[in-house]
């Protein structure tokens, strides 16, 4: 029984990473209708930049705001330079562009920092909290708090500020928004900036656990894609809940379903996602888009 609970807790901890990354995916998707395959590599890049600052001897909490701002600027820059020309070419060229970005950023990181994995200090310190025979590391608890904070801020930005309002307007009906004087490109750029900043948090939550290397987010990205689809690509809460479901189901399946083990366990979150979207195509929290003929 204790092991079952601990496995669930372990799955939740892993799900935190998928959840934040899924959140970033959903922000870009809502803006452009693009599944950004490069989101994971962009996040990893943020983690490498953080490490560079840390090596200068700066304290983590001073580096954090700098990295978040730099990530946002980087995301906006990518939108402005390479995504902009393809903005109106439909989802397939954008999907393919994401692949090119993934390969390019991955190669760039390997060139600059090498392919070895390196330790990344936990901002929350080393240690374990134990209660009722269950444990969580400081890092896992800190990640949970980070996730809740990022989620809250993102929801506030989207639902309570004029920035969010305009972002949603541009996303839902680009033509009308343009007619109303909202420059579509500008708001998409801002959307990419926000997504990159959220992604940076994902990397900072992941790097101390996974150790930092250019390929760090390759595997989490796949599960984050499942998480975002499961929870609903248009819903921020959905992305996070999706991440947690994916994490827990992956962990429990690997342990308790005979024959799946550590490698095939990922089948289970994918199957759950497929069943959910067959029943509810917009995902658990997603709003179905009405189609006008």
């Amino acid at each position: 029984m204790t092991e079952l609970l601990q496995q669930t807790l372990d799955g939740l901890s892993a799900g935190l990473i998928y959840g934040i990354l899924a959140l970033a995916l959903s922000v870009v998707f809502q803006g452009t209708g693009m599944l950004n395959f490069a989101q994971g590599e962009m996040a990893t890049l943020s983690a490498f930049v953080t490490l560079v600052f840390l090596q200068f001897g700066m304290p983590f909490w001073a580096v954090l705001p700098i990295v978040i701002v730099l990530s946002a600027l980087g995301g906006a820059l990518i939108e402005r330079t390479v995504v902009r020309p393809l903005e109106r070419s439909g989802e397939l060229p954008l999907l393919t562009l994401g692949v090119a970005l993934l390969l390019g950023i991955n190669a760039m990181m390997a060139i600059i920092w090498g392919t070895n994995s390196r330790p990344f200090p936990s901002p929350f310190g080393q240690g374990v909290v134990t209660s009722l025979g269950l444990r969580m590391t400081y890092q896992q608890l800190g990640s949970l708090i980070t996730l809740l904070a990022v989620l809250t801020v993102t929801i506030l930005v989207f639902n309570r500020t004029s920035i969010g309002l305009r972002l949603r307007a541009v996303a839902q009906n680009p033509d009308s928004a343009t007619l109303l004087g909202q420059h579509r490109g500008k708001w998409l750029m801002i959307g990419w900036g926000i997504a990159a900043a959220v992604g940076a948090f994902a990397a900072l939550v992941a790097a101390p656990v996974l150790t930092l290397s250019p390929g760090m987010m390759t595997f989490p990205l796949l599960l984050a894609l499942a998480a975002a689809t499961l929870g609903g690509l248009t819903s921020r809460v959905g992305a996070v809940v999706g991440g947690l479901i994916v994490g827990v189901s992956n962990s429990l399946a690997g342990r308790y379903i005979p024959g799946l083990d550590g490698d095939l366990a990922i089948v289970v979150p994918f199957v759950i996602t497929a069943i959910v979207v067959v029943i509810k195509p917009a995902g658990i929290f997603g709003k179905a888009r009405t189609v006008r003929v």
Binding site: A226, I266, V267, A274, V277
Partner: peptide, 28 residues
């Protein structure tokens, strides 16, 4: 058949899952 029920991103995900799991099954 399941793909009929899905469109766009959902179908993309289903096919991603197939692509990811296939080599793992081959090894098994």
């Amino acid at each position: 058949i399941p793909a009929l029920k899905m469109g766009g991103a959902n179908l993309g995900l289903l096919t991603i899952a197939v692509a990811v799991v296939f080599p793992l099954l081959l090894i098994r």
